[in-house]
Simulated assay, not measured.
Amino acid sequence: MGDCPLIDLGSRRRPVAPTGIAIRDARAQLFDAAERILLRDGPSALTSRAVTEEAGVAKGVLHRHFEDFEDFLAELVHDRAGRMDAEAAALREAAGTGTVAGNLADALTALFGSVAVAMVALVTFRDELRRRLRRTWPAGVPVLTEAVDVIASYLTAERELGRIAADAEIDLLAPTLIGSAHLLFADRQSAPPEPEAVRRAVAAVVGGAVREPGA
């Protein structure tokens, strides 16, 4: 760990950053600080100084863990995209319960009511960040492509249960749902859309494919 000091924890000794923050926790702290800035002030407010000040750490801490600020932002986007695994599992478990449209509306509201829209704005705002992401993510915006996979997995599960038509084109339905939801939630200056507006948008996309009783 180079010249990093050590804290004596009895039988365990753990390297810490110069400010006293454990190195293994520093990345998470910096990511959380960047997310707060992004949600509060938008992508134009994200700078290395703003992130370290928000996190309450010395400026050098960020550069000890990342090649440069664009590398930090690329890792932030990947980290937040990776968090969708839990959401995907929860949505798949909902298959066969409630209604298809209701489950989709709830999932899209949870997804786009979080940091997803802000991450899309960040990637759109920074040209160099898009170039960095292309190294490991050749197509699409990571958060949105992960979201499409989440919705497609759920629709596939519902199709297997007979609640979605066997000939439904899930590869088209999933990105259409994500695109529709993104348009509803993308305006950071306005209040989030009403639940009924989200349900109507979902029904417009999947209504013809749903095979629930009374649908």
Rank of each mutant, 00 (worst) to 15 (best):
L46I: 07
L122C: 07
A121G: 14
R83Y: 01
N103Y: 03
R130K: 12
F69R: 09
R132A: 13
F72P: 09
L122E: 10
R36V: 15
E54L: 00
R80T: 05
L62C: 10
E70R: 10
G113W: 01
V120M: 06
T47Q: 10
S48P: 04
E93C: 01
V141G: 03
V57W: 07
L38A: 09
F66S: 08
A50N: 08
A58Q: 13
H65C: 04
I37Q: 09
V115S: 15
E87A: 14
M84K: 13
D127M: 04
V61H: 10
L122W: 07
R49D: 13
A107T: 00
R131F: 03
V57G: 09
M84N: 08
A110D: 14
H65V: 00
A50F: 12
L76C: 03
V51N: 09
A94W: 00
I37T: 09
S114W: 05
A105W: 02
W137P: 03
A139C: 01
R132Y: 13
G82L: 01
D68G: 12
L73I: 06
E54F: 02
E67A: 14
D68P: 12
F69A: 06
G60A: 13
F72A: 05
N103D: 07
P138N: 05
E75S: 06
T47M: 11
D68V: 10
